[in-house]
């Protein structure tokens, strides 16, 4: 049976369709989840897509974090459900305290969209197990508030525990501390990433196919995990 990967749509989600497409191309069945519905409909993993949930009018992700679907999702994530937060999804995961630190306004204060080099450093997570450690990939980054910040102790811990999933290479697009582009929780099932792997899954529309690895990884992970 093919894995079922949920993609949550909040009011203001923008890349939910793209995330669903990426899941499909990776070979899984995308299941659309609605912010107002606490039910996860038995999905095997969840993607929180990019966008401007609730307009991001408070702090990015600060309102989405209280959506009914999040209450269920936070528990499920703590229970080991693979969750990938992309861009706004990453911000929501931080606001929900599933991941440490916060994402703040880009240092240069501009929204920035470019094809970004990343170095994958942690390949033990549910979402990166098909990459080689140290592998450099190219996927789009596009955000206005993608500057990752955390206190020194947290940053040191993240690095010490191998929880920095990816760093920016060839230029830091938003001023993130220690060039951090993606991190994971201690269990490795929850990953937040600022750039957009779902925009690098087709040769025709993306700068590479490197993004696909995140979605095939979770399938590999699920096969390895007895349901």
């Amino acid at each position: 049976m093919t894995a079922r990967v949920g993609v949550v749509t909040f009011p203001g989600s923008l890349d939910d369709g793209d995330a669903a497409r990426a899941v499909r191309i990776a070979g899984a069945e995308p299941v659309r989840l609605w912010h107002g519905d606490p039910e996860l409909h038995g999905v095997d993993a969840v993607v929180l897509p990019g966008g401007f949930s609730y307009g991001d009018y408070l702090r990015c992700g600060a309102i989405a974090r209280f959506a009914p679907v999040m209450e269920t999702l936070v528990d499920a994530a703590r229970g080991g459900l693979p969750v990938l937060g992309i861009c706004n999804g990453f911000q929501i995961l931080c606001e929900a305290h599933l991941l440490p630190g916060a994402l703040t306004r880009n240092q240069h204060l501009h929204f920035r969209n470019r094809d970004q080099g990343l170095r994958v450093e942690s390949v033990g997570t549910a979402w990166t197990n098909t990459f080689q450690s140290g592998q450099e990939i190219l996927i789009p980054v596009k955000n206005g508030e993608g500057c990752y910040v955390a206190d020194t102790a947290t940053l040191d811990a993240l690095e010490a525990e191998g929880r920095v999933v990816a760093r920016y290479v060839g230029g830091n697009p938003n001023g993130s501390q220690r060039d951090i582009a993606a991190i994971t929780n201690a269990a490795g099932n929850v990953v937040g990433i600022m750039p957009h792997p779902e925009h690098a899954v087709e040769a025709l529309t993306g700068p590479s196919l490197d993004g696909l690895g995140f979605f095939t990884s979770v399938l590999k992970h699920l096969v390895g995990t007895p349901a």
């Binding site: 923008l14 890349d15 497409r21 920035r112 025709l204 529309t205």
Partner: peptide, 28 residues
């Protein structure tokens, strides 16, 4: 300038600036 615009969202952008034309896929 164009770095300040999202050209990837919706996943159907085949060509965008600086190309001569923008090209959008409308049927996958």
């Amino acid at each position: 300038v164009t770095e300040q615009y999202d050209r990837y969202v919706l996943g159907n952008t085949v060509l965008a600036q600086p190309e001569d034309s923008g090209v959008i896929r409308i049927d996958e």
